Computed example of a mutant assay.
Amino acid sequence: MDARSVVVVGYAGAELLDIAAITTSLEMANRIGRPDAPYRISVAAPGGRPIACASGLVLRAQLPLTAALGPLDTLVVSGGPGHARAAADPVIVGHVRRLAGQSRRVSSVCTGASLLAAAGLLDGRRATTHWQYADHLAAEYPAVTVDAEPIYIRDGNVSTAAGVTSALDLMLAFIEEDHGAELAREVARALVTYLQRPGDQAQISMFTAAPHAEHDLVRRVAGYIGAHLDGDLTTAALAKVAGVSPRHLTRLFLAHLGHPPGRFVRRARTEAAARLLSTTALPVARVAARCGFGSAESLRQAFVRHYGVPPSEHRAADGRVSPR
């Protein structure tokens, strides 16, 4: 079988890590798996000029956009601070549109979604981008249904990834699709990365989105929640811990976190359960108990609401099998 031709589009101000996550993961698949249809990867840029990346490092392009010709297996548009200028350049956008029409699979990483949107490739589709840029993308391109929650979205043959390291997750999904789950897992292990996050996982979790530092009480209660997930975390119990009334605690959570204590607790428990499902072989019932769910069914319902899939499906995406 012929090689799978992959073109990664870069431009001035592209994010080097976006590009490297794509090229390294696909090249690792070639090295480890020696597939019958290896990836042939090229980085293309306007005029074939060196790409002055956002980090200050300069990356040599392998060919000019004009020389990138189909048919292609996969087109990937990188993101970076230079995305707005690139999306406003009709020449770059025209080449992206042309190459997309010659590609089996089209994708973007991070703010590279703006170039796909400018080319009309996301019209009528659901797409994601970096959470900081999602509102802007939605306002700029109303024909696109922007969802800032998932780390990547696949809508037909067009995929969009949230940003930076989510490029690894999308590439692992591509490798699995092309060459099977075992090679994808081997690549993930070689890269010492998460094995492997499902696309519906949230970009920001309760464990990385810290409460606003200016309010000590909210931060203290949030920390208490994280340390006592299997305890009594009703609003009344938390208010007693904080030394305030339940109504006042709710007002503080709404003001500083955007949602009431109960919702914060449910999300914290669900995300803690997701971590245990991904990193341990504990039975679902024990995961539910550790994270404060009354039963495995309660955990299942929370999972479906938050992630759109049941716990068993989330665990299967990591290559783990629930104990019988």
Rank of each mutant, 00 (worst) to 15 (best):
231 G>N: 15
259 H>I: 15
255 A>V: 08
225 I>N: 00
276 L>M: 09
236 A>N: 05
263 R>I: 09
275 R>F: 13
267 R>W: 11
253 F>I: 09
265 V>C: 10
273 A>E: 08
242 A>C: 03
234 T>C: 07
227 A>E: 14
228 H>I: 05
254 L>A: 01
236 A>S: 07
236 A>D: 10
255 A>S: 08
272 A>D: 11
269 R>C: 02
260 P>H: 02
262 G>I: 06
231 G>F: 09
238 L>G: 01
246 P>F: 07
257 L>M: 12
248 H>V: 02
246 P>V: 02
227 A>N: 12
276 L>N: 12
246 P>S: 06
247 R>W: 13
276 L>R: 02
264 F>T: 05
224 Y>W: 09
237 A>W: 02
232 D>H: 12
262 G>N: 11
245 S>A: 06
272 A>N: 10
265 V>T: 10
230 D>F: 03
276 L>G: 12
259 H>K: 15
227 A>H: 14
247 R>L: 15
268 A>R: 05
233 L>M: 05
272 A>L: 09
228 H>C: 04
229 L>Y: 14
258 G>W: 04
225 I>W: 04
234 T>K: 06
262 G>C: 09
248 H>T: 05
242 A>E: 01
249 L>I: 06
225 I>C: 03
238 L>N: 00
255 A>I: 02
251 R>P: 09
230 D>V: 08
258 G>S: 11
244 V>C: 05
275 R>A: 13
233 L>T: 09
250 T>K: 06
261 P>Y: 02
268 A>L: 00
237 A>V: 06
271 E>V: 11
240 K>A: 08
240 K>G: 01
249 L>C: 03
243 G>Y: 01
266 R>L: 04
275 R>W: 14
230 D>Q: 08
244 V>S: 02
268 A>I: 08
247 R>D: 11
272 A>F: 08
263 R>Y: 13
255 A>M: 08
262 G>K: 14
230 D>N: 13
274 A>L: 07
224 Y>N: 00
255 A>Y: 10
236 A>T: 04
272 A>R: 04
